[in-house]
Simulated assay, not measured.
Amino acid sequence: MNSTASHPTPLLRTVVGEITPDSVRGPVLAHEHLVLDLDHKGDGAAVLAPDRHAAAVTAELAALREEFGLSLVIELTCRGMGRDVETLARIARDAQVAVVAATGWYYEPFHTPEIDDSSVEQLTGTLVREIHGGIGATGVRPGVLGEIGSHGDTPTAPETKVLRASARAAVTTGLSVATHAQLGRGGLAQLDLLTAEGLPPQRISIGHQDLLDDPAVHRELAASGAYVAFDTVGKDSYQSDGTRLRLLLALLEAGHADRVLLSCDISRHGYLTTEGGQGYGHLFHSFLPQARAAGVDEDLIDLMTRRNPLRFLTGASVEEI
């Protein structure tokens, strides 16, 4: 009996119920926000509001499903980031695109009060209860931990506490962890903290590595077995797509195509196409055609945009998906 038969690939937990990985036939956006409120400045820019923007978000996802077969979005808005899973469920139903919701805490400036007042064990308990029992009274259960944040080369003490609690919750529940590494920095430190708690590297995605122009770090993360997220594609104010493509090609040439995740990290309403932004489809409309022109074939694109994110979520092996 083969390993797939002995250990069936886990189901994907979406905001409208569980689905099988083999039902996801088209690409996956591995790190997005569909509803969000990070408005600490009071200017309303870092917002995707349910009442003002959900219709535009839904329309974009539906159009991408029609044109490119978009099948699933990993939505990494967690505690303290304006998470609204009821709106996520409505978007998923109306767009006919599966959505995985998240739990956890972002990086320190956005921590909620319980971080300071709770131990690692208490924070772990909070996450495990939400994963098993659902978010609030909605009944919607998270399918991933993320985006678990830190900033700088070394996580702060509160960020370290959150990373450790997230790893423990992941080990207990069988979910995976997606991180926020501010401007791409600190990924190796995040990986060390998470794996020290017993979380296997293949259940970890280190975020925003396309903002770090350091191929050696990317290779080290990938060689460990962790996923390397090039997940801010199109955010030219942070990094040009030309640099992103160069870094991606270097990682592919080093033999690590099976560790790459791709997405756009839409995190403010000005990024929506209705407001003149690049939108959730920038990956498909612009970046992937550039990758194809540089010699990346369709099997590699399917690997990076579908099989890898499914394997990240489920812990499946290369052979299983």
Results as ranks from 00 to 15, higher is better:
231 D>S: 03
122 Q>Y: 07
257 A>M: 11
152 G>P: 00
7 H>E: 15
245 L>K: 09
253 E>L: 06
238 Y>D: 13
184 G>T: 01
84 D>H: 02
220 E>W: 06
227 Y>I: 11
153 D>C: 14
196 A>S: 14
14 T>H: 06
197 E>R: 01
186 G>K: 04
291 A>T: 03
69 G>T: 03
112 T>W: 15
265 D>W: 02
174 G>S: 13
296 V>L: 15
130 E>P: 00
135 I>T: 08
299 D>N: 05
55 A>G: 14
208 H>K: 03
160 T>D: 07
289 P>T: 01
114 E>G: 04
229 A>M: 04
3 S>P: 10
16 V>E: 15
148 I>D: 10
11 L>Q: 14
177 V>C: 05
190 Q>S: 08
265 D>H: 01
133 G>S: 08
141 R>M: 11
226 A>P: 00
190 Q>T: 00
296 V>F: 06
209 Q>R: 02
237 S>D: 08
146 G>T: 00
265 D>T: 02
181 A>D: 13
134 G>N: 05
204 I>T: 00
51 D>T: 03
292 R>I: 10
169 A>N: 02
208 H>S: 14
91 I>E: 05
86 E>Q: 15
88 L>H: 03
180 H>G: 06
13 R>K: 11
237 S>F: 13
27 P>A: 13
216 A>C: 13
170 A>E: 09
145 L>A: 07
120 V>E: 09
194 L>S: 01
228 V>W: 13
267 S>T: 03
267 S>E: 04
140 V>A: 13
286 S>C: 14
10 P>T: 04
76 L>D: 00
71 S>I: 00
224 S>L: 02
46 A>T: 05
318 V>D: 10
26 G>R: 05
315 G>S: 01
151 H>E: 14
286 S>P: 11
141 R>Y: 13
163 L>Y: 07
160 T>K: 11
176 S>M: 10
152 G>A: 06
140 V>G: 00
304 M>N: 01
